[in-house]
């Protein structure tokens, strides 16, 4: 599916959880966080509220895919962290988006 696409895969194969997944990856790029901390961080940085169901739908997909992993913890609020492949995927995705954004802004005459 995403095998021979360019580095900007529109949905990373995550379906309706694409955008939440991206926000989670960005949130975890800062350091390990548990679910509630991710929600707060995403609300603060992206100005978007992610519902608990959406959050865990995306978390489960990201974990299955190996892009994030849980950190063993005594607390029920289990923290997650980015894996190496997750960091690589996020880098690829964000680079692609940046290229796209640059192109769009240049065409608009906003950026040089």
């Amino acid at each position: 599916m995403a095998d021979d696409r360019s580095n900007l895969d529109p949905d990373m194969g995550l379906g309706r959880f694409t955008e939440p997944a991206l926000l989670i990856l960005i949130s975890l790029a800062e350091g390990e966080k548990h679910g509630y901390a991710m929600m707060q961080d995403i609300a603060a940085t992206a100005n978007t509220r992610i519902g608990p169901g959406t959050l865990y739908g995306a978390l489960a997909r990201l974990e299955t895919r190996g892009w994030i992993e849980s950190v063993s913890s005594d607390d029920r609020r289990r923290p997650y962290r980015l894996t190496a492949s997750g960091a690589a995927a996020l880098t690829a995705q964000l680079t692609g988006m940046e290229k796209l954004a640059t192109t769009g802004l240049r065409r608009l005459g906003v950026a040089t």
Binding site: P52, Y56, L59
Partner: peptide, 12 residues
Amino acid sequence: YGAEFLALIEDC
């Protein structure tokens, strides 16, 4: 995911 999901729901 049950335990942490419950914890999250308690938090918000």
